[in-house]
Write a protein that binds this DNA or RNA. Structure first.
Lengths: 92, 92
DNA sequence: ATTATATGCAACGTTATAATTGCATGTAAA
DNA sequence: TTTACATGCAATTATAACGTTGCATATAAT
């Protein structure tokens, strides 16, 4: 019942955040800008850049996304490590 | 992005509901009454029976818990089927 | 039948979450 | 050094989630 686990499940509970993870799985190293346009264009999502940035904050808080500054861009990296044993208590 | 997936992740996003799943994993076939006393006594949770009933509704909605009436009791059964391939898109 | 027990249902208040808007900062190109 | 572009931060609003309270229903025991 640790705090990290809670952050992970909370992060996964939103469909937009899961979509972000899907995008990052398909094509790692997206910038926030690229991600935003992809979500809006490709997935016809109507959402602001700021809203996406908040979702990313939640994902980073859970350790599911890392981000590094590259020039004026912020590059996003998916980290699935926290997911690996997440359901092991319930699924064999 | 289907509705079921959303219900499952939403169900898992609450720590009390995860605790309920833990209890049902440890000892299947609990009645709502037993579950309530266990959560309150054993885990020192301060929560009403009605609140637990709502959590169970969420878990049932996600297909994670089944319940059957037995006399005046409601017996709860854990079903981990919906969890089995839940993270497969992200974890190998 | 009456009483006790286990559960169901609905209205309400409080808090948390998602998203927007507006402005500020930092970096790159002209 | 302007100007454009990508991102960061803060205040606000709207909605959803969690929990409580009060009452109703159903089954079992006396």
């Amino acid at each position: 019942m640790n705090k990290d686990t809670d952050a992970i499940f909370k992060a996964l509970s939103d469909s937009t955040r899961r979509l972000i993870l899907d995008e990052l799985t398909e094509r790692n190293e997206l910038t926030l800008y690229e991600l935003t346009t992809r979500l809006i264009m490709k997935h016809e999502l109507s959402i602001s850049r700021q809203a996406i940035a908040k979702h990313l904050a939640a994902l980073e808080d859970a350790g599911l996304v890392k981000s590094i500054r590259k020039g004026r861009y912020r590059v996003l990296l998916f980290n699935n490590e926290p997911l690996k044993d997440l359901l092991n208590n319930w699924v064999d």
